[in-house]
């Protein structure tokens, strides 16, 4: 019994020379196979975010063992009070269920909202915010502003400066490994940078 798990574990660790292991034919073994790989992935931090775990089997089993209640008992010679209570209790129960459902929905909405928030921990903006952009409100033509030429130029200038820095960085990294040679024999093939 434990021997087959032992053997499978050995195969996974590359310590066994067994050529074939009938995992598919054995539900128990195939479950363990699946589980071991999940465990291994988690330990190596290879698990993708939101990894899929098959819990359908356990849910099905839980539903299976759930006792089925079809109808509450009502005694025939019941008093008015008990009659009332049998009517009220289901109503109260139902409204309780509504309340639970509503609060779950609210929780989901809040959850969605917080998930969709931009990450406030991120201390940076990803866009260059030097000048206000024109045409932000397309509803009214009056709202559409034409950027003054000056700030347009500023924006171009910013872009140019950023590009110059990035190009220079890439150039430096490219030439990093090389030892500076004192200008002995420069020739025409030298890149101008």
């Amino acid at each position: 019994m434990t021997q087959k798990f032992e053997q499978m574990s050995a195969v996974m660790d590359g310590e066994s020379n067994v050529d074939s292991l009938q995992v598919n034919d054995d539900a128990e073994l195939s479950n363990a196979w699946n589980r071991y790989h999940v465990v291994r992935s988690v330990m190596r931090k290879e698990m993708p975010e939101g990894a899929y775990m098959d819990v359908s089997a356990s849910i099905a089993a839980a539903l299976e063992s759930e006792p089925a209640i079809l109808a509450p008992k009502t005694s025939k010679n019941s008093s008015f009070l008990s009659k009332l209570s049998t009517k009220v209790v289901p109503f109260a129960r139902q409204s309780g269920q509504f309340a639970v459902a509503a609060s779950v929905a609210a929780a989901v909405i809040i959850g969605v909202q917080t998930y969709n928030q931009p990450d406030t921990n991120e201390p940076f903006t990803t866009a260059i915010t030097t000048t206000p952009q024109g045409g932000l409100a397309p509803v009214s033509l009056n709202q559409t502003r034409v950027l003054p030429n000056e700030s347009k130029q500023d924006l171009m200038e910013t872009r140019r400066q950023i590009q110059a820095l990035i190009t220079d960085h890439e150039q430096q990294v490219k030439l990093k490994a090389s030892v500076p040679e004192l200008s002995e024999e420069a020739h025409e093939g030298v890149p101008s940078k």
Binding site: Q161, D168, Q172, V173
Partner: peptide
């Protein structure tokens, strides 16, 4: 791994420059 003062090729801007590396990644500081 490097420290110098240069002019950027594209704009001619004078920069003080240092290059750092850990072997896998390189970081430029201007």
């Amino acid at each position: 791994i490097k420290q110098d003062t240069r002019r950027l090729a594209a704009t001619g801007q004078r920069v003080e420059y240092r290059l750092f590396s850990d072997g896998l990644v390189d970081v430029s500081v201007y």
